[in-house]
Amino acid sequence: MRLEYFQMIDRFVDVNVGERVARAICTVPLQSPVFEGHFPGYPLMPGVLLIECMAQTTGWLVSALTGFTGLPALAGVKEGKIRNAVFPGDQLEFEGKVIHEGSGYAIGEAKGWCKGAAICDATLTYRIIPYPSPELRAGLWEWAERINFPAKEFAK
């Protein structure tokens, strides 16, 4: 997990675009400036970053479904729940499902686990927006390769 870069996913372990589901794993770093503030003397993974983990897991799947023709921008989080505390060094698993592909938007459901216990879940809304810069889209392939997401297979 590259926490300071907001690149939350270490590796996708299963991507099934036909079934509209993807699973990813990541390890919370042992040290980060985030934990110096949240909280001094009691490093705790911010719940909002667990939401981001779910959003990125599902967002990559939305990208694949749309053939990487647009950027899935997180637009809504419903029924977001943080069920358990997560600490530095914890290994996390996330599952994202796309439950609806609309015109210019998508709806996903995501969950996260730590040591088999549920830590978070939410329903996520994405707006699909045109890539705001060619550099962003061009950089996706290297990023995808690093996290084992088969992006080029689905790129239109």
């Binding site: 637009a75 809504g76 609806h100 609309g102 015109s103 809304t125």
Partner: peptide, 16 residues
């Protein structure tokens, strides 16, 4: 978007 999602689901369509 929420309304479009509900309409898509309710009528089995995809509002363009």
């Amino acid at each position: 978007l929420d309304i479009a999602f509900a309409i898509d689901k309710a009528f089995g369509i995809k509002l363009p």
